[in-house]
Design a protein around this nucleic acid. Structure first.
Length: 918
RNA sequence: GGGAACAUAGCUCAGCUGGGAGAGCGGCGCCCUUACAAGGCGUAGGUCACAGGUUCGAUCCCUGUUGUUCCCACCA
């Protein structure tokens, strides 16, 4: 081991060693219980961001923990072809070389994307390796792999056969820049400042004028009605009559519908079924004609007569100008409203009538609701045991999930792109019918014609992602992998893709796997923000690159930070200071290990002169060939209290870590590990051991090594690199071969041995040390001073237990000597007194402390204690408390009061003494 | 409009089913003490957003108010 902790010097080496030794591999067939996580597939164009880092840290910690706990653990990796995103990236890339998609044609363009993918597609996976991701890389899948494509076709065709997939002419979201249809989810409603234009419409006979208000005046070119509320007196006489559309002079009917809000705007609504979703529904209801006035490029078509060829916004300006010129514009009022923007390119999305493929998801959604509802009444453990329930954590998201599922609308799955799964539907030139088929079709299923043309469109990227948990396992084949790992154990991902992905996986998973859920738990992690709580974005320039963090602090420190902050349901504000703190933790562990190894003689050459090195113990001789843990278990009852104490603390920490991990409370597990390693093992046990090794060498050597070994195992899921590096430096010992990686060792399980009476006396020693240190600190006694102190144990039954600790208290409190008080100091004015619960210490003040300072200290202690007494008295004086609180608690409070009062008496004596001295 | 979450020490956050509030970082004081100055020891700092209610007792449970954030639906 190197002297300094330097993660950069070993993380890459360790990772390569694991990979070379196939440590990440899961078995298709195994006697071990299965545990599986499907990794959310990043886009092939992606680069690792902090969201990935958080998810990967959580998933990796869970996988490593399960793997070490005896599970056949599979973490299934892969990448997503990400239709629009990838096509855009490569298009931009080609544009730099002056190559245009339209010019080179579909086949050549798709070829170019594949080339790009081969070259750049694995970058993110390389980055994930830096984080320590222990996924089974040999199983990596890509959504356009032959196997996954087969699954996509199977699902498409089955849905078609079940009449859940259909082609229809509907109003859909159209991005005029991407030139494709979008699903509802891909449209982001965004607040925009605009205007409310109030326009005068005249009745056909020219007698009546009514005013309608609109945010999109250009759409009047496509109006096919004006709607008013049936009970609106202002317009009642117009219902059923016609009004003249301004500018175009086309006549449209006035219809009445309760959908119209009398009090909004002018109470009259222009109806444009061809370019507005609400108007579309209204139009359907009233059998209005549906007019398309914009083309796919977002220009006015021939329907718009004199406006033909203008872009939508140009048409808006022109329409407004013309209305004004004709005196038909009553007024313009600024108005903020929301417009739908394309998720990928921020272009305003236009509702358009178009032929597209849709999935009728309603029937699938009902089942998807059921499985989540079922889990509400079940515990996590129960959910894990079955395959028909899904628990969503944090639970707050279930309501959102239900709400979305209950109001779900048909899913538009066709996209006018080239990169993706081409839709397996063929159109017959002869009879115009559609043939949908698992195999590439050459013959029309309806007329037998052979002139077929495949649908040009591809499927929404999320269509193939929806199959991810089973398509990656070989479905539709019932492979061994599939049988072993489906349903998977947990889906861990960001809440932002709950609908895009999680909801759809649940629907598809249930539908195509005999009602079995795709995963038993859904764990939604928070969003990683910058330290001010702002979303990280390139335009804001506040992006912290995870790779930079790893370079500066090491992957372990970063992982430990993320795990510590992964508390459920809250955004994470990433701060570098916090990461630095956890790097210090890794450093602490590193140095603790170096101490143990050096002190036991396994690590040479760095000890300062004067420190006694123990000849390296041969553990196999000490334990007679038994593994350390087994030997400890059989002997621990007879160990020195300090060793019993650390073993008990280890049991407690182990128990807590396992419980927290079961519930995926990684932050609690991380905190427990931090506390145990630093504040129990390092601060106390190692310090005690310096003295203890002088007298109880064998058992202490074994405990020092064993507890370190167990601490490394407990920490490994969070900080895999540093723990592995240290572990490989530990000496040979029974039951452990040095060449075996830590990541494949057994995760600790708490032994049943509880806190023994012996180990409890260590608590008494610790508080004695703390009290003496505080005395020194408060009185500014030089750390170099070595006072001679005497003690008196108040309760005689504790006398022996305390006495046993004297050498350790002497060592840790830096005393010259600690001996029992024989009466010489008692009552001596020049002797200070320090009280703990069980013991009183007498400290000679001469030359150590100035009397004034000590007086102050005692006075402060006394007044603190008096305040405590007031509090307890207040409690005990309430009769209702005595009557209704549990007897146990009342007794405890009374006992506390007695103790506090005796303390005050002691302080009074001390003050009296000090006063005399002055 | 509907739903969810959050408000705790200067900062970032823990606090499980209600019994006198914790950590990390930062501050202050003393120490380069023999694994670790990325360290050690000590110490200061909080009417747990506000107002009610339930209870012997509320940071914790209930109601309301205020503030922040997010999701869904969008009255043109």
């Amino acid at each position: 081991m190197q002297k300094a902790y330097d993660p950069e010097s070993f993380e890459t080496r360790i990772y390569e060693w694991w990979e070379k030794n196939k440590c990440f591999r899961a078995e298709d067939e195994s006697k071990k219980p299965a545990f599986a996580i499907a990794m959310p597939p990043p886009n092939v164009t992606g680069a690792l961001h902090n969201g990935h880092a958080l998810g990967d840290t959580i998933q990796d910690a869970l996988t490593r923990w399960k793997r070490m706990s005896g599970y056949n653990a599979l973490w299934m990796p892969g990448t997503d072809h990400a239709g629009i995103a990838t096509q855009m990236v490569v298009e931009r890339h080609l544009a730099k070389q002056n190559i245009k998609r339209a010019e080179i044609g579909r086949a050549a363009f798709v070829q170019k994307i594949w080339e790009w993918k081969e070259k750049h597609g694995d970058i993110i996976m390389t980055q994930k390796r830096k984080l320590g991701v222990s996924a089974d890389w040999e199983r990596s899948r890509f959504t356009l792999d032959p196997g996954l494509s087969k699954a996509v076709r199977e699902v498409f065709v089955s849905l078609y056969e079940q009449k859940l997939m259909y082609r229809g002419t509907r109003l859909i979201n159209w991005c005029t820049r991407c030139q494709t249809a979008l699903s509802d989810l891909e449209v982001i409603p965004t607040e925009r400042k605009g205007n409310f234009w109030h326009i005068r419409y005249k009745s056909a006979d020219g007698k009546v004028t009514l005013v309608i208000a609109t945010t999109r005046p250009e759409t009047l070119l496509g109006d096919t009605a004006v709607a008013v509320h049936p009970e609106d007196g202002r317009y009642k006489q117009l219902v059923g009559k016609k009004v003249k559309l301004p500018l175009l002079n086309r006549e449209v009917p006035v219809i009445a519908d309760a959908y119209v809000d009398k009090d909004f705007g002018s109470g009259a609504l222009k109806v444009t079924p061809g370019h507005d979703f609400n108007d579309y529904d209204l139009g359907k209801k009233h059998s209005l004609p549906i007019l398309s006035v914009f083309d796919k490029q977002g220009r006015v078509n021939a329907e718009g007569q004199q406006y033909k060829g203008l872009k939508i916004l140009e048409a808006r300006d022109k329409v407004v100008t013309d209305l004004e010129a004709q005196g038909l514009l009553e007024r313009i009022e600024p108005h903020t409203h929301s417009v739908g923007l394309c998720q990928r390119c921020d272009t305003v999305v236009e509702p358009m009538i178009s032929d597209q493929w849709f999935v009728n998801v309603k029937p699938l959604a009902e089942k998807a609701i059921e499985v989540v509802r079922r889990a509400e009444k079940l515990s996590l453990a129960e959910v894990d045991r079955r395959d028909d329930a899904i628990k969503i954590v944090p639970e707050g998201w279930t309501n959102t999930y239900y709400q979305w599922m209950e109001n779900i609308r048909d899913w538009c799955v066709s996209r006018q792109l080239w990169w993706g799964h081409q839709i397996p539907a063929w159109y017959c030139a002869k009879c115009n019918e559609i043939t949908v088929s698992r195999e590439d079709s050459t013959k029309c299923a309806h007329c037998g014609g052979s002139e077929l043309k495949q649908d040009e469109d591809v499927l929404d990227t999320w269509f193939s992602s929806a199959l991810w948990p089973f398509s990656t396992l070989g479905w539709p084949e019932k492979t061994k992998s599939y049988r072993t790992f489906y349903p998977t154990s947990v889906m861990e991902t960001g809440f932002d893709i709950l609908f895009f992905w999680v909801a759809r996986m649940i629907m598809m998973g249930l539908h195509f796997n005999d009602g079995k859920v795709p995963f038993k738990r859904v764990y939604l992690h928070a969003m990683v923000r910058d330290e001010k709580g702002q979303k990280m974005s390139k335009t804001k320039g506040n992006v912290i690159d995870p790779l930079d963090i790893i370079k500066d602090y090491g992957a372990d420190a970063f992982r430990f930070t993320l795990a510590s902050m992964a508390g459920q349901g809250r955004d994470i504000k990433l701060s570098l200071e916090r990461i630095e703190g956890y790097k210090a933790f890794c450093n602490k562990l590193w140095n603790a290990a170096r101490f143990a190894l050096m002190r036991l003689g396994f690590l040479e050459g760095e000890l300062p002169p004067g420190l006694k090195v123990i000849a390296a113990p041969d553990f196999s001789v000490i334990t007679q060939g038994k593994p350390l843990e087994e030997w400890i278990t059989s002997k621990r009852k007879h160990f020195h209290p300090i060793n019993q104490w650390i073993l008990a603390r280890l049991d407690l920490a182990t128990e807590r870590v396992n419980v927290a991990m079961e519930e995926y409370r990684l932050n609690d597990a991380a905190a427990e590990i931090y506390e145990f390693v630093w504040h129990e093992y390092c601060d106390w046990y190692i310090e005690f051991s310096k003295e203890l090794l002088n007298s109880h060498q064998e058992e202490t050597s074994v405990c020092l090594m064993h507890v370190l070994d167990q601490a490394l195992r407990l920490s490994h899921p969070f900080i895999p690199f540093v723990t592995e590096e240290i572990y490989q430096s530990l000496p040979e010992r029974p039951g452990v071969k040095r060449t075996e990686p830590l990541m494949l060792q057994a995760f600790p399980k708490a032994s049943k041995a509880s806190l023994t009476e012996e180990s409890e006396s260590v608590g008494m020693w610790k508080s004695a040390i703390e009290a003496l240190r505080a005395f020194r600190g408060e009185n500014n006694i030089s750390p170099k001073a070595r006072p001679k102190i005497t003690y008196e144990v108040m309760a005689s039954e504790k006398h022996q237990a305390f006495e046993k600790g004297a050498p350790y208290i002497r060592a840790l409190a830096q005393l010259e000597s600690l001996s029992e008080e024989k009466g010489s100091s008692r009552g001596d004015a020049a002797v200070g007194e320090v009280l703990t619960r069980d013991v009183k210490f007498y400290i000679p003040l001469k030359g150590l402390v100035d009397v004034e300072g000590e007086l102050k200290r005692v006075q402060k202690e006394k007044s603190d204690t008096l305040a405590d007494i007031e509090f307890v008295k207040g409690k005990l004086s309430r009769e209702s408390f005595i009557a209704k609180a549990p007897q146990e608690l009342v007794d405890k409070e009374r006992e506390k009061l007695r103790f506090l009062e005796s303390k005050v008496a002691e302080f009074d004596r001390a003050l009296d003494r000090l006063g005399r001295l002055k």
